[in-house]
C-alpha cells in the first residue's frame, strides 16, 4: 500500500491496511535491531524531538533508540528542567521546537488530545506517545506485533485485557487496533474501573476474570495505578490481586498455549504474580524489543520519503 499519513495520533483513525503495513514494516526493522551492528544511514539529516510531559522509561528510551538506529538525530526535553516549569504553554514550547526545524515530534502529555492539538499547529509530523486516558498507539502496535509473532494472523484470536480499563490508554488503543485486526477482545475489571461506554468499540466486558480465561490466546495485565486506591475505586490491593491478579495457576484455565503481556512497569504480586512474570509464557521483555522495532517502522514511515504525504 501507499503510506500517506504524516502523524500517528491513535489507532482509532487508522485502517486495518495501515496497521498491517506498520506491523509488516516492523519485521525488517527487528532484523536490523538484532544485528551486532545496529545503525542505518536511512534517516541521516532527519531530526526527532521527544517532548515528554509525563514520566516514562521504556517509551522514551525506546523511541530514542529507534530514531538513532535509523540514523536520525534525536533530542529530548526533560520537562521538569525546561521552560515549561517557568509556565510556558504546550503550544509555545512546541512552536519553539518546530522553529528548530525538527522533522518529527514525539509527545506524551497528561491531556487527552494533546498530540492531535500539536498536529494541527505544527509543520512537523507528530507521534502520540500517550495522551491522557485517550490513546497510546505505539504500545498497542507493539502488543499486536508480539501477538503476530506468536500466532500470525490475529483473526479470531481471543485477547483478554485485565485491570484498570477506565484510566488505560493502552487498553483503549488495543481495543481499537485488535478489533480492526479481527481479534475478539474481552475487557475485564472491577465495575468501578470498567467504563460501560467502551462496549461501543465492539468488545466484550466482564467483571469475572475466571469466567473469561477459557480459550484465551493472549492475556494482558495492565498496570494497576496504585494511586487509584486512594480515590476509593477498589477496596484493597489484596482483594484486587485475588480477583484480578494473574498467576500461572489461574492461567491453566485457558486450556491452551497462552501468552502473557504487560505494558510495564509491573507491580509484581498485584496484577501479575512474580513467577508468571518470569515464566516462558510471559513475553514482556519481547514486548520491549518489539517496541523499538515498531517505533523504527513508524519513524521510517513518517520521516523517510516524504513526497506522497498529506497532512
Amino acid at each position: 500500500m501507499l503510506w500517506q499519513r504524516k502523524h500517528i495520533l491513535g489507532l482509532e483513525n487508522l485502517s486495518k491496511e495501515e496497521i498491517s503495513h506498520i506491523l509488516q514494516t516492523a519485521k525488517p526493522m527487528k532484523e536490523v535491531l538484532l544485528r551486532p551492528l545496529k545503525k542505518l544511514p536511512t534517516l541521516r539529516g532527519k531530526s526527532v524531538m521527544h517532548l515528554f510531559y509525563e514520566a516514562s522509561t521504556r517509551t522514551r528510551t525506546s523511541f530514542e533508540t529507534a530514531g538513532k538506529i535509523l540514523g536520525a538525530d534525536t533530542a529530548s526535553i526533560a520537562v521538569a528542567q525546561s521552560s515549561v516549569s517557568k509556565g510556558e504553554s504546550l503550544l509555545d514550547t512546541a512552536k519553539t521546537i518546530a522553529a528548530m526545524k525538527v522533522d518529527l515530534v514525539v509527545i506524551r502529555h497528561a491531556a487527552s488530545g494533546a498530540a492531535a492539538f500539536l498536529a494541527e499547529y505544527l509543520q512537523a509530523g507528530i507521534i502520540n506517545a500517550g495522551d491522557g486516558q485517550h490513546e497510546h498507539p505505539t504500545q498497542a502496535l507493539l502488543d499486536m506485533f508480539t501477538m503476530q509473532e506468536e500466532f500470525g494472523d490475529l483473526t479470531g484470536k481471543k485477547v483478554v485485557i485485565i485491570g484498570d480499563i477506565l484510566h488505560s490508554r493502552v487498553a483503549r488503543s488495543n481495543a481499537w487496533g485488535l478489533t480492526k485486526m479481527g481479534a475478539e477482545v474481552t475487557l475485564v475489571g472491577p465495575p468501578t474501573l470498567l467504563p460501560p461506554e467502551m462496549k461501543a468499540l465492539g468488545v466484550k466486558m466482564s467483571h469475572n476474570l475466571d469466567g473469561e480465561l477459557e480459550g484465551a490466546d493472549v492475556v494482558m495485565a495492565l498496570r494497576l495505578q496504585l494511586e487509584r486506591q486512594q480515590s476509593g475505586l477498589f477496596p484493597s490491593l489484596r482483594e484486587y490481586s485475588r480477583l484480578y491478579g494473574i498467576s500461572s495457576q489461574k492461567l491453566k484455565k485457558t486450556g491452551r498455549k497462552t501468552i502473557v503481556l504487560h505494558p510495564g512497569p509491573m507491580n509484581r504480586g498485584v496484577e501479575i504474580s512474580s513467577e508468571l512474570a518470569d515464566s516462558p509464557m510471559a513475553k514482556i521483555e519481547e514486548q520491549v524489543t518489539n517496541g523499538v522495532a515498531v517505533r523504527m517502522a513508524l519513524i521510517y514511515l513518517l520521516a523517510g520519503g516524504t513526497s506522497n504525504v498529506m497532512a
Partner: peptide
C-alpha cells in the same frame, strides 16, 4: 531499501 541514496528525491515511499 534502507540504504537507498534517493530518499529525499523519489516521489514515493519504498516498502521495506
Amino acid at each position: 531499501t534502507l540504504y537507498r541514496d534517493d530518499f529525499s528525491t523519489i516521489g514515493f515511499q519504498p516498502v521495506v
